[in-house]
Design a protein around this nucleic acid. Structure first.
Length: 505
RNA sequence: GGGUGCGUAGCUCAAUGGUAGAGCAGUGGCCUUUUAAGCCAUUGGCUGGGAGUUCGAGCCUCCCCGCACUCACCA
C-alpha cells in the first residue's frame, strides 16, 4: 500500500492505536438504535416529565469535529441520519477525551454510548459516556466540510468531479446523501413495478442471459465463449423471444426485470448494460397494453414519489391524466410535414426528405428513414407523456400487422421528457409470417453488409405449437429512474456506470 | 470514429508567457455549548503524461491518456 501524506498520518495513528492495545478494526459493533430511532425515541418522550432518559449506543461515520478544549462536538452519520456527539471531560475524563482528539479523524466509523439530550442551542445530541473506534479510515473522504442550516446539510466543496464520482462511487455515496437517495428511489421503482405486475396476475420469471442465438431487438451483441462446450454464446440483447416461448407453455402473463447487454455506442441515455422490464400478456393487444402502461406508471409514480407528478428538466410531467395518443404518421406530418403514407417506397420518401432540405443516406430502407425522422424531429418534442402508435412493418419484425394495413404494425412507443421510455406491440404469433420476417431481416442485413442475424429456429418451432395472441411490453428502468429523479444522464442512475478503463498509476 | 471544451494541493477553485495561491481538510498550540465554531502558527504541488517553441511555459504548439458536451454509429 502506498500512502499520501495525509494517509501516512492516519496510518501512524493506527500503529499507535495498536500499540495502545486498541483495535482499529474490532470485529463487532453493538448499536442499540439507528440514529433515526434514537432521535425518534428521544423526541417522543421529550415533553413527558416521567419519561426515562434515552440511553443509546450509536454507530456511524464521523463527519465533523469541533474541538474546544475540554469539550468536543462532532457529528456521526449513518445511512439515514446524523446526530451530534457531545463529548465532555466531565463524563469521559481527561485521558479518554484526549484519545478522541488524538486518534479519531473525519471518515472513521465510531461507536458512541451515552444519553440523548439537547444542547444549549437545542440540537439533539448524544452526551457521550464512552466511545470506541469501529473502523479507522485511512483515506480522507473527498469532502471538505458540511454545514447544517435549519436541518439542511449543506456540503461545502464536496466531491463534484464526475469522473471520480463514477469511478469511486463508494466515495461519492459516502459523501453525497442525495446520490444515495437516487438509488433508494430506483429500488422503490422496481419494487412498485413488481407489486403492480404481481397484483395483476403476472408471474416473474428468469430467462437465460447467455444465449446461443440472440434476438428480440435491433442491436449488436456481446460475444462470449463456453470453454468446455466449445461454444460461442451471446449476452442477451432482450428477453423477448424467451418470454414469448413461455406463452406457448401456458404461462400466460409473465414478466422479467433484468439486465440487457448491447454492444453499441455509449451516450447520456445508453450504457452497455442496462435494466429492462418486459412483460407478455396473453389475450391482450397493444391497445390494452397502452391503457395498462398508463395505469402502471401512474401507480409507480405515486408509490415512489407520493404523487402522480414530477419535474423533469424544468417540465412538470403529469401521469394522472391519460397520455396523448398520436399516430406516428400524424406525428411526422406535424413535426416534419411529410405524410409517410404518400411515400410507400424508400425512394419516394427519400425524395420527399430531400425536398425538405434533409440529406438521407441513399439506399436507406424506408423504415429506417422513418425511424430517423422520428428520432431527429419528433422524439425531442414529446415532453409530456405521449404514445406514438402504428409503426412501419419493416422495422418491427416481431409485431403483428394491422388487419387493415399489411405495411403497418400494431406497435407503440411511449415518450416522456423527449426520451423514448417504452416499446410495445401486439405480438406476432403467426409462425409463417414470423419466418418470412426473419428471412427478410436476414436479406436486409446481408444487403446492408451488416452482421448476420441468425434465424431462431427453436423460436419458430415453439410458435408452431401455437402461441396465444398477446401484447408485449418493454421499458428501460434506467430511463424511468432518470425521469423520476430528474437526472440528465444514465450514469447518474447506475451505481457503477461503464467508463473507459484507465491505467492506475 | 469526428468536432468542441476541460484536467492546478485530499476537496472546491484562483493565478497577462515572468517566484504556483486561497478557503476547507491536515499538523502544532489556545479554548467547557459549538455547528462551514473562533484565534495563533504551520505542512502540503513533477500544474494528467510526454515532446517542442521561448531567456523563461500552468498558460503557446504537437502527441498520448482520461472526462464532459456534441455529431455519427446503434436492422
Amino acid at each position: 500500500m502506498e500512502f499520501s501524506d495525509l494517509e501516512k498520518i492516519r496510518y501512524e495513528k493506527i500503529q499507535r492505536l495498536i500499540a495502545a492495545g486498541i483495535s482499529p478494526y474490532p470485529t463487532r459493533a453493538n448499536p442499540t438504535h439507528t440514529i433515526q430511532e434514537a432521535i425518534a425515541a428521544f423526541t417522543a418522550g421529550e415533553n413527558d416529565p416521567n419519561a426515562t432518559p434515552i440511553q443509546a449506543t450509536l454507530c456511524g461515520r464521523l463527519r465533523s469535529m469541533r474541538v474546544m478544549g475540554k469539550l468536543i462536538f462532532a457529528h456521526i452519520e449513518d445511512s439515514q441520519a446524523r446526530i451530534q456527539l457531545f463529548l465532555r471531560i466531565n463524563e469521559l475524563g481527561e485521558e479518554k477525551l484526549e484519545q478522541f482528539r488524538e486518534y479519531f479523524d473525519l471518515g472513521d466509523f465510531v461507536e458512541a454510548q451515552g444519553i440523548v439530550m439537547r444542547t444549549r442551542t437545542g440540537e439533539i445530541s448524544l452526551q457521550v459516556h464512552d466511545f470506541r473506534m469501529l473502523a479507522k479510515a485511512i483515506t480522507p473522504l473527498p469532502a471538505a466540510k458540511d454545514e447544517i442550516l435549519d436541518g439542511q446539510v449543506i456540503r461545502h466543496a464536496t466531491l463534484a468531479d464526475p469522473e471520480v464520482r463514477y469511478r469511486q462511487r463508494y466515495a461519492d455515496l459516502a459523501v453525497n446523501p442525495d446520490v444515495r437517495e437516487v438509488f433508494r428511489t430506483r429500488a422503490r421503482i422496481v419494487r412498485a413495478l413488481r407489486d403492480f405486475l404481481d397484483s395483476h396476475g403476472f408471474l416473474e420469471v428468469e430467462t437465460p442471459i447467455l444465449q446461443p442465438i440472440y434476438g428480440g431487438a435491433a442491436a449488436r451483441p456481446f460475444i462470449t465463449h463456453h470453454n468446455q462446450l466449445k461454444q460461442d454464446l451471446y449476452l442477451r440483447i432482450s428477453f423477448e423471444l424467451y418470454l414469448k416461448r413461455l406463452l406457448v407453455g401456458m404461462l400466460d402473463r409473465v414478466y422479467e426485470i433484468g439486465r440487457d447487454f448491447r454492444n453499441e455506442g455509449v451516450s447520456f441515455k445508453h450504457n452497455p448494460e442496462f435494466t429492462q422490464l418486459e412483460f407478455y400478456w396473453a389475450y391482450a393487444d397493444y391497445q390494452k397494453v397502452m391503457d395498462f402502461t398508463e395505469e402502471m406508471l401512474r401507480y409507480t409514480c405515486i408509490q415512489v414519489l407520493g404523487k402522480p407528478t414530477f419535474t423533469y428538466e424544468g417540465h412538470e410531467i403529469d401521469l394522472s391524466k391519460p397520455w396523448r395518443r398520436l399516430e406516428l404518421r400524424q406525428g411526422l406530418i406535424e413535426a416534419v410535414g411529410i405524410d409517410i403514407n404518400e411515400h410507400p417506397t424508400s425512394e419516394s420518401l427519400e425524395a420527399a426528405m430531400r425536398a425538405k432540405g434533409l440529406n438521407p443516406k441513399p439506399g436507406t430502407p424506408r423504415g429506417k428513414l422513418i425511424d430517423g425522422l422520428l428520432g431527429d424531429f419528433l422524439e425531442p418534442t414529446l415532453i409530456q407523456p405521449t404514445f406514438l402508435y402504428d409503426y412501419p412493418r419493416d422495422i418491427s419484425p416481431l409485431a403483428k400487422s394491422k388487419p387493415t394495413d399489411p405495411t403497418t404494425v400494431e406497435r407503440f412507443e411511449g415518450f416522456i421528457g423527449g426520451m423514448e421510455l417504452c416499446n410495445a406491440f401486439t405480438e406476432l404469433n403467426d409462425p409463417f409470417d414470423q419466418e418470412a420476417r426473419f428471412l427478410e431481416m436476414g436479406r436486409a442485413y446481408e444487403a446492408d453488409d451488416e452482421e448476420r442475424h441468425p434465424m431462431d429456429e427453436d423460436y419458430l418451432r415453439a410458435m408452431r405449437y401455437g402461441m396465444p395472441p398477446n401484447g408485449g411490453f418493454g421499458m428501460g428502468i434506467d430511463r424511468l429512474t432518470m425521469l423520476f429523479t430528474d437526472k440528465r444522464t444514465i450514469r447518474e442512475v447506475l451505481l457503477f456506470p461503464h467508463l473507459r478503463e484507465r491505467e492506475e498509476d
